[in-house]
Design a binder for these strands. Structure first.
Lengths: 103, 103
DNA sequence: ATCGTCAATCGTAGATGAACGATACACAGG
DNA sequence: CCTGTGTATCGTTCATCTACGATTGACGAT
């Protein structure tokens, strides 16, 4: 996963409202648009924008059911992100500030 | 971990240059400032700003050694972030778009 | 004391983001 | 046909981000 892709997913998650949306979608198997709009203290248009950001990043998907929308968390995308970042983190050595007196 | 905290870490990672920095720090046990400045095609002041963002979010730490700086990845912070997000992801049910014909 | 190095900060310009109300559009029901 | 519901999009305003050059400050070396 490139830096750009990684940063792209991170950017999609870089707002509390969007994290909240992700949580909502993870908690409910039925993830209707109405529930999302009701679950946040924001204007409908603002939430719709946040949904668009998440969808563009591939973090969620959307499909119409009857007259309304159903949003779903894209588990694979989230897991790829976590794996990529986890791979970086596990490479990291412990940094020991104590050895500063190298004179 | 609150939505704000989660979004805060994500925001710190929401730029390719900062992802690159994180990778650099993970790859080297010696993470000197000079190496970071040399590792990115950006002005020194810009990179310093990115380092500040990462440091504010707690993703990295910095300490002086002699006349220069040493930056370190904060593994615990990164891992807490990954765990929080992983917890959300593992809660998620598979969303099945096929059952849309619920009329 | 002067110089060069390393890093942080300042000031600025342009791009992007966040929030809202208003509007548009598709569709279901009366 | 008219109306209400559920979403998306538009246009705007204000805030934040990104990048840069210039400057500053600390330190070591000459």
């Amino acid at each position: 996963m490139t830096d750009e892709q990684l940063a792209g997913i991170a950017k999609a998650l870089a707002h509390p409202a969007r994290v909240r949306i992700v949580r909502l979608l993870a908690a409910q198997s039925e993830c209707r648009g109405h529930d999302v709009f009701a679950g946040l203290p924001l204007a409908q248009s603002t939430i719709s924008q946040h949904l668009r950001v998440l969808k563009s990043a591939g973090v969620i998907s959307a499909h119409a059911v009857g007259t309304s929308m159903v949003y779903c968390l894209s588990k694979p995308v989230l897991e790829e992100f976590l794996n990529a970042l986890g791979g970086i983190a596990s490479d990291a050595a412990i940094c020991d500030p104590g050895q500063g007196d190298d004179r």
